[in-house]
Simulated scan of single mutants.
Amino acid sequence: MNFFRLFPLAAATVLLGAAGSYAQTTPAWNNKQCAVVLTYDDAIDVDLDNVVPALDSVKLRGTFYLIGSSPVVAKRLPEWRRAAQRGHELGNHALMHPCDGSLPGRGFVTPDNDLSKYTVTRAVNEARANNTLLTAIDGKTARTFAYPCGDLTIGGVKFYDELKPDFVAARGVTSGLQTAAQVDLTNINAYMIHGQSGDYLVDLVKQAQASHTLLVFLFHGVGGGHGLNVDAKAHRQLLRYLKAHEKQIWVAPMVEVAQKISAAQQAPQKPR
């Protein structure tokens, strides 16, 4: 039984006591209590219609993982460019969003986009092609990757191993809070959000504050537009809490947080 999932607010209270001082800060989190990353997958219309305006209204920045072949990328390219100019990250969610169709519950996977039928070379080349497209949109070369469907391997081989030089880090789909030292930059934890309340979202942030850890949200639809959805009011409640506590919480795109984690992990350890 996972205490933290069942009783998030109570868990935060326990962690607060264990932490000793709620005001404690962490260098890896930009000298704040914790880091929160807001990520949005699949390059869908509601990203531009609902999410970007909501983030901009409170001057917070997020990471949008774009599928290069999404028609929403092509038809709304100037809007994606403007979002990047305002500080949002355009992350790489692969060119075709291939998922492993051999796994249970993957009836939605088409033969053309079945990762289990890919070669590692094809997956790598498509991810790099999407990087080229994204650079043409935002002019940037540093960005992060998000595994489509959270699938890491092709025939037992981790295809991202060949992509490490191309990205700062990669986001996965396994939930969990981690310190900078615990973070695996090849598969960063994230909480998949689908139907949870605003209170649940805020309580997750409170847990991260209390434990001085990284919290990554994984959204798809916000106020509709996707089978995996969170109510727009719940999303706004989260943003309001983050804005009200911005002196204690570092909210930044994944690429910036990952760069900070990488630096912290590579820094020489001070003798105790």
Rank of each mutant, 00 (worst) to 15 (best):
A19N: 15
P78M: 09
G156P: 05
F64R: 02
H226C: 13
H245V: 00
C34N: 02
A94H: 15
F167P: 07
F159Q: 04
Q237I: 00
N31M: 04
R76C: 05
Y22L: 10
K140T: 15
N130P: 05
A10I: 14
R236A: 14
A267D: 04
H212N: 02
V216Q: 01
F167E: 09
P253G: 01
A264V: 01
T141V: 03
K243C: 07
H88V: 10
L214G: 00
L66P: 01
R5Y: 14
F219P: 10
G20V: 08
A252H: 04
Q207H: 06
R81A: 14
A129V: 02
L238G: 12
Y200K: 07
R61M: 09
G150K: 12
F219T: 05
D114A: 08
Q33C: 05
G91Q: 08
V73C: 09
I67K: 02
L242Q: 11
D151C: 03
C34R: 00
Q237N: 01
Q178G: 07
W250L: 03
A181V: 01
I67Q: 00
L239F: 04
T213H: 04
K206L: 15
T13I: 08
P78T: 11
S197M: 03
D42V: 12
N92P: 11
G156M: 06
T132F: 08
E162Y: 14
T63Q: 11
L204K: 12
V51I: 11
L239C: 00
N113R: 14
E246H: 02
A129D: 12
I261W: 03
L134E: 12
V51Q: 10
S116H: 11
V183P: 13
D138L: 13
I44K: 06
Q209A: 02
A232F: 15
Q24T: 12
V52G: 06
H88D: 12
I188G: 07
I44Y: 00
P8G: 06
Y65W: 10
C99N: 02
S116C: 07
Y200P: 01
I44N: 00
L16R: 13
K140R: 14
P104G: 12
E89Y: 13
D49W: 10
K117W: 01
L201D: 11
G20A: 04
D41C: 01
N189V: 08
I154Q: 08
V124W: 06
